[in-house]
Design a protein around this nucleic acid. Sequence first.
DNA 1: TTGTATGCGTTATCAC
DNA 2: GTGATAACGCATACAA
Lengths: 326, 326
Amino acid sequence: MTTIKDVAKHAGVSVATVSRVINATGYVHEDTRRKVEDAVKELNYTPNEVARSLYKRKSRLIGLLLPDITNPYFPQLARGVEDRMQESGFRLIFGNSDESKEKEKDYIQTFIQNNVVGLISSTNDPDSSAYTSLDLPVVFLDRIASDRPSVYADGREGGRLAAQALMERGSKRITILQGPQHIRTAQDRFRGAAELLEDQAIDYHVVRTESFAFADAEKWARQLFDQHPETDGVIASNDIVATAVLHEAIRLGKKVPDDVQVIGFDDIPLSSLLSPALSTIRQPAYDMGRAAAELLIALVEGTPVVNRTIQMPVAFVERDTTHKKR
Amino acid sequence: MTTIKDVAKHAGVSVATVSRVINATGYVHEDTRRKVEDAVKELNYTPNEVARSLYKRKSRLIGLLLPDITNPYFPQLARGVEDRMQESGFRLIFGNSDESKEKEKDYIQTFIQNNVVGLISSTNDPDSSAYTSLDLPVVFLDRIASDRPSVYADGREGGRLAAQALMERGSKRITILQGPQHIRTAQDRFRGAAELLEDQAIDYHVVRTESFAFADAEKWARQLFDQHPETDGVIASNDIVATAVLHEAIRLGKKVPDDVQVIGFDDIPLSSLLSPALSTIRQPAYDMGRAAAELLIALVEGTPVVNRTIQMPVAFVERDTTHKKR
DNA sequence: TTGTATGCGTTATCAC
DNA sequence: GTGATAACGCATACAA
């Protein structure tokens, strides 16, 4: 590797001068600047980030902690984060936490060891000491942390929208799949839906689901129709589960949406390619990722930020698992 | 942050001794070892990786370069890589290349600046100077690089399996969706399928597709049935495209598999949840990720490796978009 | 068995 | 305007 020393020698100046021109700091004569720039180009020199990081005690690295990149919702978040970070010259150290506190701590630890300047996390427990005791800027993504920086979608409203859509389209015996209890956003969706149904005095059932995992989705779908075969409207906890519900409904010979309407949550890319295409509540995942990145960058750079918690809008995406509204 | 100096002071020894016990190198008296260990625990000390990296000129960081994490096939690769790396204490710096040489170069550059010890890449052009001129161990994942370390699935065999499955199940007018020309693995699949069909003297059509993107998938599906409405068997370039084909077929009122059989490629998690569930050629994505990580670790650590190119097996997964075989 | 001193590549402070 | 040089936190060669 070529170092600043090589460049200095090659340009016939001191390392201090080279440093000055690279960082555009302090005075340097036009002629020497050119000499240095030529040397840099000729030797194909790029500064060693590690040395920089050591001296400055901060890197250009950001930690990104997601539960499981394998779950189709997260790649979009990740992509949003990455794109925005990229634009500002930050790199991502990435980890899957599997919602395990152990793994989270472990990762946070190594983030610190690598001098990351900030952290974006989709933890289920923002109030854990692992985060509160951190003196790094942290942005919680797709998670809610009262009064600490976070970016999330309006799940409550999403739940309401879903319930309203089903109601308006004639479902009388609605079943809500209640997502994992320990995930706040999932509960918000549930509460929103339940709330509206109660307001409208509409009867509904609830089926608990303990995970968002592919492997379990079919199980929840089966349970749903087992326990409530008369269901004519399903509010699923996310699109994966909704897909499984759709699959199971069709397997049981039900017509969708005629016998049973289905609404998902997230609007993952595949939703529109399902048959029938899945009606769902859209979360702007990519934009959420970007927003989180943007917020973190502001925090890192000390730019004043007005809104430390950003709630993104959700919207009902009408496709073919619900009736067309007249 | 607490440094090795703090620990040394606290334990009443020199930094060298502390270093020795942390790294289990050189001699150190049992008593002093305990003293140091106590101090480490008490001060909650963990070594600064950046300083280590600077001194040793190598970090515990690995670069991972994928085309687009948003494409459902890649998260599984990524997860496999991450899990394996995690087990050996390596962290991932992650980037999306969008198949752009520019972005690739850019990332590789910053990987180097951050002293990564190795690189896993799904580039379309392993022979680009960006890679050949690198003096880092590189493993190509889901990509083929003759005589350089790589992990990929047997696409040719996959294509053959798909064609054979369709043939055996009675399709007479098969259309193959030929994936992007610049992606070698996609071409292998295509060639495998075409090859077998030609051997069997079975007539087939080809529809070119230029990408694996969601946004385009429906377009290819439409083109397919536009140009070859009589098609009774489709070999799709991957599961996304297959899903779109399925969607389009159903939209056109075709019965699957009775009117048209469909086979995908990859076996992404959602495939089994489609209605009808998608028959496909399975690539062991997660295991491929793990294998790539394993190979890279061996390369990094100088462990002798016997097979530098690992070809993983593919398999036909029979679900509901193909007839049951009697 | 332990401590001192040096260097990893950079940036910043201070003389000149 | 420019150049020595200390310091960032760590690991090692060498001396003790």
